[in-house]
């Protein structure tokens, strides 16, 4: 597996940047000629991960969110979304569908379930007080020309 393209993006954890972040990742992936559904899946997963950084990682205070995107020669997109926020004590618990620590924000507790369902593979690594990294992969099915 060889990396044939890569991008890095960092931005403030303002919720007005959620649309910006998912649009940038979508534009990056456009090189692979994804279907509308594949692109929507990636945008939705990125939106969930970035919202988690803002609402949970930085608890609505300002920090920096980092996105690294890679494309491999086997049409795989690898997206890493990282914050240096509070971290997650119990990753397994956080990933349970409907579990949320922000019900007053009307968070449905579906962020990780959406990422897992819309991407091929999702990994979460987190350390309390250090931050959280979500790594997601999705292979874009090549279309016959």
């Amino acid at each position: 597996m060889k990396i044939i393209n890569e991008m890095n993006l960092s931005f403030l954890s303002k919720s007005s940047n959620e649309g910006f972040a998912r649009s940038v990742v979508a534009s990056f992936v456009l090189n692979l000629d994804p279907t509308i559904n594949e692109l929507a899946d990636i945008k939705t997963a990125v939106s969930e991960a970035v919202t988690n950084c803002i609402v949970h990682g930085y608890k609505m205070e300002h920090g920096v969110i980092y996105i690294n995107g890679k494309i491999t020669d086997s049409n795989k997109v690898i997206i890493k979304i990282r914050d240096k926020g509070c971290g997650i004590e119990d990753v397994e618990k956080a990933m349970e569908p409907l579990f949320t620590t922000a019900p007053e924000e009307e968070r449905a507790g579906l962020g990780f379930a959406v990422m897992q369902s819309f991407m091929d593979n999702v990994k979460v690594s987190s350390k309390p007080l250090k931050g959280t990294t979500v790594t997601m992969e999705k292979t874009i099915i090549p279309r016959t020309k």
Partner: peptide
Amino acid sequence: SFMDSSGIGLIMG
């Protein structure tokens, strides 16, 4: 045109 789980929270709320 697009929604993430915030739209689901909106419905449940």
